[in-house]
């Protein structure tokens, strides 16, 4: 597998993010930068503001103060804070991919159609979109699963389809919100391995929000959020390795990746 060098300007730069919900301050001035191809985990207990941070970075929520600037692989930088909802929705379609805990696949579409949909939304023909989608499904070990509906897939298979869906448009950044939260440990390990490896191979940056240290260990850099502030930042020893330090070499054999 080729690794993308961490070079060039920052892919995503957030400065002084503040977000309040009524009397509650979810983010109290957060700075985050993300390099091209870098993987970052955001840790923190429930209610710490980590999901709000992900939503602000991804242009889902507008921060009350501060800025989020995306530098796409080509073209001028985009200041997400200055864009309206419609434009931000377009930015999310074009430049970002998303993997949620569960239930993001449309239940009436097949796995193949679910993966083809983002490309079709960006104007690809159905035939082209399905051809590309089929390639992603086989890269994620889902050959022969294309005709299945989400209800006919296991939790791990559905998450792999979600990873394919997130990467099919070749996004600049993939945002994953508790991507293994609904999976058992061995399946979660499998999904994290595929998520980090394929994201990296596609040259995309990755932001993983989690409260699980084992999941966070897959990322090169980790920040910890508490009470709306970044309280800790750490870089994993060994740099850009794709398997967390101490993890077993067998994907299926080890129940505990640590």
């Amino acid at each position: 597998m080729t690794t993308t060098p961490l070079a060039g300007p920052d892919r995503l730069t957030a400065r002084g993010l503040v977000k309040r919900f009524g009397p509650t301050t979810a983010l109290a001035g957060v700075d985050v930068t993300l390099r091209p191809g870098e993987s970052l985990s955001v840790m923190g207990p429930s209610g710490s503001g980590k999901s709000t941070l992900l939503h602000c970075l991804a242009g889902i929520l507008q921060p009350d103060a501060g800025s989020v600037v995306l530098q796409p692989a080509s073209g001028a930088p985009l200041d997400l804070g200055s864009l309206g909802e419609r434009r931000r929705s377009l930015v999310r379609r074009q430049h970002f991919g998303f993997v949620f805990q569960f239930g993001q696949l449309l239940s009436e579409l097949t796995a193949l159609e679910n993966v083809a949909l983002p490309s079709m939304l960006l104007g690809a023909t159905r035939a082209d979109a399905e051809l590309t989608a089929s390639g992603w499904l086989s890269r994620l070990g889902l050959d022969g699963m294309g005709d299945r509906r989400p209800g006919e897939l296991s939790g791990g298979q559905a998450q792999r389809v979600a990873v394919a869906r997130a990467l099919v448009t070749r996004p600049a950044v993939v945002f994953a919100d508790e991507p293994t939260g609904a999976l058992d440990q061995a399946t979660g390990y499998d999904v994290m391995r595929l998520l980090t490896e394929t994201t990296r191979a596609a040259g995309a940056s990755l932001v993983v929000v989690t409260h699980d240290a084992d999941v966070a260990a897959w990322c090169e850099r980790r920040i910890t959020v508490r009470d709306g502030l970044v309280v800790d930042e750490a870089r994993r020893a060994g740099g850009a390795a794709t398997v967390p330090a101490g993890a077993g070499t067998s994907v299926h054999g080890s129940a505990d990746p640590r």
Partner: peptide, 8 residues
């Protein structure tokens, strides 16, 4: 979730 991921 589809809307969060940019579905218009």
């Amino acid at each position: 979730l589809q809307h969060l991921a940019g579905l218009p």
